[in-house]
């Protein structure tokens, strides 16, 4: 029981953390380009419903993910037009997108509330999944879990090891300088926003096609907002996003395991449910004490509108 138990805690933690990683990494790239898109929650909802609908009609989870991705990009394009081309306030545009996405997904998702989707089988990785404890927890998972790891590595490599990544960061640090040496700030920001939207869409797809698997209004249940706070929690470092996401997932799962063990624990359930959020705030406070880290990693022009001729 002991080891099995540990393994199932780990397994559930990884699953709970995965949508957060995918969405947060997308948002991180967007923010690194200096754009604050608060629309993640709404994009996730629309991605979730699009993915569910396509997966339901085509019986293909892969096509579902693609649909979620495309829907997410379409949503973030709306944000881009408003915040980048029309230069509306980024915070307001993002919030509007969130509210719109939650409502819109409920509206178009009505016919899908009554249908169930077969759960997608896990993908064991040869050999690795036979490792005791870690194998069944980490290497016999949903395909998107592996995707989240690859994504993390790829984004970390892109941001810190490639020229394109350097340019993207430059755009986020000082759009005026980047513009003056000839980089298309708005074009690069559009790309970053679209990438963020695509990832949020995939995160939504994970929720509706792999995680629950079903579609109901409100099923994203605030995970988009958690992903946003994870980016700050991670001080804009990709690998810390992973730590944060698993910490968050782990807190949620642990409190459930404590409750489910039938042990006579007298900690109020409300406190246990609040634990992940308390942990987020705690780490946030700890990190903020060191102003250097924040300044070093947070994009200097985050949330500021860029006027090419200013």
């Amino acid at each position: 029981m002991g080891l099995d138990f540990l393994s199932s805690i780990l397994f559930a933690t990884v699953v709970a953390g995965t949508p957060l990683i995918i969405v947060a990494v997308g948002e991180l790239v967007t923010e690194k380009a200096g754009v604050l898109n608060l629309g993640a929650e709404g994009i996730m909802c629309v991605g979730a419903v699009a993915a569910f609908a396509v997966a339901y009609h085509t019986h293909s989870p892969i096509l579902g993910i693609l649909a979620g991705m495309v829907a997410g990009m379409a949503m973030s394009l709306l944000f881009g037009i408003s915040a980048l081309t029309l230069m509306a306030n980024q915070v307001a545009s993002g919030l509007a997108l969130s509210i719109f996405g939650v409502g819109f997904s409920a509206f178009v998702g009505k016919p899908y509330e009554s249908v169930a989707l077969a759960s997608v089988p896990l993908v064991p990785i040869p050999l690795l999944h036979k490792i005791p404890v870690l194998g069944p927890a980490l290497f016999n998972q949903q395909g998107l879990v592996y995707f989240s790891w690859v994504l993390l590595g790829a984004v970390a490599w892109f941001l810190y090891r490639t020229k394109a990544g350097l340019i993207l960061r430059a755009v986020g640090e000082s759009p005026v300088s980047a513009h003056s040496i000839g980089y298309g700030v708005v074009r690069i920001r559009y790309q970053a926003v679209l990438f963020g939207g695509a990832m949020a869409g995939i995160g939504g797809a994970f929720m509706s096609v792999f995680y629950t698997p079903m579609w109901v209004e409100g099923m994203v249940a605030g995970r988009g907002w958690i992903a946003l706070s994870l980016v700050v929690f991670a001080t804009w470092r990709p690998l810390r996003v992973m730590i944060g996401a698993y910490l968050f997932g782990g807190c949620m799962i642990m409190q459930m395991f404590v409750q489910g063990s039938g042990a006579k624990v007298t900690i109020p359930a409300q406190f246990l449910s609040a634990l992940p959020y308390v942990a987020t705030i705690l780490v946030l406070v700890l990190i903020s004490r060191n102003r250097g880290t924040i300044r070093l990693n947070s994009p200097a022009s985050l949330g500021q509108t860029f006027l090419p001729d200013a």
Binding site: D4, F5, Y211, M214, Q259, Q270, S273
Partner: peptide, 21 residues
Amino acid sequence: WVNSWFDPGKEREAAMTLIAQ
């Protein structure tokens, strides 16, 4: 206790946790 009337993700996790235990 999931402290929510409606959060399918959390409800599912709770069920899976109970099943695993």
